[in-house]
């Protein structure tokens, strides 16, 4: 009695697994057809880079506002923001970014006469070559596109927040509404259509420059070849791809 039942059970199991296998094979064969390899190879020609000229930034926050609207960023999170650094004559430093500077800045933090050096630093995802967030994503939802943009697959992301912890630049956040991690995409939907990212499009001072690092004629390449620039937290080995002109030692 027992033996027969068990045999039946095993048989059933085998049949069902075979069925599942066949089904899955069928499903897979279907998918293989609509591959767009050309697209992949076309993208390999690009390596999107970002350059921020901090000496030109006026801290107006137009980039932050444009980004919010473009990407429907939740209220209290930011894909890009502007920081202000103010150093007074005694060497005190104050850094602030009220609401990510979405409404710009209202007043100087020190007495205006006391400030010896002050500047704005726009921040955004660095789209690192060796990004910590891509490394730590447990499900392969964060990935690097062939054109070297770090993106999130919102269909796969489980929202564990490990990438948020791993990003040394504080560029990531969990979108609680969608339950997934999110961050700057360099406006991937725009750059694929030949447009500049929303923040670059909105910048009234051309402080943000965007372009293809693989193209020797691109503006970003030309500037990078001519001028001295820095990266954020280079010691962490993330190899960030957002370059800053006029970076101060205080900026982290």
């Amino acid at each position: 009695m027992n033996k027969i039942e068990r045999r039946k059970f095993i048989k059933l199991g085998l049949y069902s697994t075979a069925g599942v296998l066949c089904g899955s094979l069928f499903a897979f064969s279907k998918i293989e057809q609509d591959a767009n390899v050309d697209n992949y190879e076309a993208l390999l020609k690009f390596d999107w880079g970002f350059l921020v000229d901090t000496t030109r930034c006026i801290g107006c926050g137009a980039c932050v506002r444009a980004c919010k609207i473009e990407n429907n960023v939740p209220e209290s999170y930011f894909r890009t923001w502007v920081e202000r650094y103010e150093i007074d004559k005694n060497g005190n430093i104050r850094v602030d970014s009220p609401k990510g500077a979405i409404e710009s800045f209202k007043t100087d933090n020190f007495q205006s006469e006391d400030i010896v050096k002050a500047f704005f630093v726009p921040k955004l995802c660095n789209h690192c070559y060796d990004s910590a967030c891509t490394q730590v994503c447990p499900v392969g939802a964060t990935y690097e596109t062939p054109d070297k943009v770090v993106l999130i697959d919102k269909e796969r992301c489980v929202g564990c927040g490990y990438c948020v912890q791993a990003c040394p630049y504080g560029c990531r956040y969990i979108d609680h509404e969608k339950g997934v991690a999110d961050k700057c995409t360099l406006c991937y939907h725009r750059i694929q259509k030949g447009e500049a990212p929303a923040c670059v499009n909105a910048c009234p001072r051309s402080a943000r420059i965007f372009g293809n690092l693989k193209d020797p004629k691109s503006k970003i390449r030309r500037i990078l070849d001519q001028r001295r620039y820095g990266q954020l937290k280079p010691d962490l080995g993330t190899n960030p791809k957002c370059f800053y002109i006029g970076l101060d030692k205080e900026v982290v």
Partner: peptide, 21 residues
Amino acid sequence: HLGSPQRAFNIMLTPNFSSAM
């Protein structure tokens, strides 16, 4: 805590082994 707990099994479906998690 997961943002999308319904996808919890993704961690076994497509594990990214460069991640500690």
